[in-house]
Design a protein around this nucleic acid. Structure first.
Lengths: 190, 190
DNA sequence: GACTAAAACTAACACTTGTTAGTTACATAT
DNA sequence: ATATGTAACTAACAAGTGTTAGTTTTAGTC
């Protein structure tokens, strides 16, 4: 029986509310009410509302970065790496759907340091992603295609996966991964 | 020299701010400052902040619905209709990028009537989209593929097109359309 | 120049926001 | 039982929110 620390409970509840209503429309009183305490009591566990968002966004961003790092270093051909990237997205999305749901938009509410770190991780991730796709092209694994647009397209789908998953939670994870790979990569493959 | 009505100027500026900071983090005073008047003066032109969001979101939603209606009725085969849908998204995105950028997330801030209308338009649109993809499959225009996932994937890319466009505004529209079609449809085509 | 309607202004409202200060309850170790 | 540190509480703050009322300015018509 895993007992979350109060801090973690707060952060998780906040994630759920941020997802539903957005960071800005969620007050610390909303978060406190959900947990069953007064707003001011939250401050025994967190430093600020902003800190919650920061922790959420940077944790999930690091999950993606670390996953990318592993995949880059793995002894696989680029097409296999691409498939691994799909798995990475599916897994992180299923494990922390609320935090993942914040990625596309809520980063705008991060403040100076946090926003810098987040965007720098995101940019590096996209760069790595494109490189792997480019390697696929160079080594003849996929048809000639505009790399910019293709990577944009695949990443768009993967980023929105959380919304699809929230409507189809019954789906088998392995199956989902396979279908995603078929859908996103097979169309490109030679 | 097209002179926008004050009301339209307000709504356009609001769209730009809503996009940058989100509906909730944009105050009516922010909007007023951008236009160069006092917050209270806005109310000579609009009924409420909510009305602005409502008009923005439902206008753009109707643009998509109307476009879909035309395409459905056009004397084309389903694959051609799919291509037309890509054009539709590219064109609306380029014409009103700010309003389009609000679609994925800001609808959560619509209120009772508006949110109902918006979601009903969106659901119908997705249903029509899937049907056209299904027709492609039934008539043998595309490879066998999970329709749910394929339409989700294509729509994800088209929904996020605005963010890609904001970074690549120099691109030729016709070229963009062609590349999108190649990227999204050609992978599926038999 | 006087009249009128539209659209700007100032001032204020009731309410919500994130956060802090100060205090009390509670659990654990001695 | 006593002491101690953690975590809850109440109360309040300064700032910001959308919106309204009432007034003045502006622009066009007779």
């Amino acid at each position: 029986m895993s007992k979350l620390s109060k801090r973690q409970e707060i952060i998780q509840q906040a994630a759920s509310l941020f997802r539903k209503r957005g960071y800005s429309s969620t007050s610390v009183r909303d978060i406190a009410r959900e947990i069953g305490m007064e707003a001011s009591s939250l401050y025994n566990h967190i430093r600020s509302k902003q800190e919650i968002l920061n922790e959420l966004m940077l944790n999930v961003a690091h999950s993606f970065s670390n996953g990318m790092q592993s995949i880059k270093e793995a002894p696989l051909n680029p097409l296999q790496k691409l498939e691994r990237l799909v798995s990475l997205h599916v897994n992180i999305t299923i494990n922390e759907p609320d935090a993942v749901a914040l990625i596309p938009n809520e980063w705008i509410h991060l403040e100076t340091q946090g926003i810098q770190d987040f965007l720098s991780l995101r940019d590096q991730y996209e760069k790595d992603f494109k490189q792997i796709l480019q390697d696929c092209l160079d080594q003849g694994f996929i048809k000639p295609v505009n790399i910019e647009l293709a990577s944009f397209s695949i990443l768009s789908t993967l980023r929105w996966l959380y919304s699809w998953y929230s409507k189809n939670q019954n789906v088998n994870v392995i199956e989902l991964e396979e279908e995603m790979k078929k859908c996103l990569i097979q169309g490109l493959a030679k």
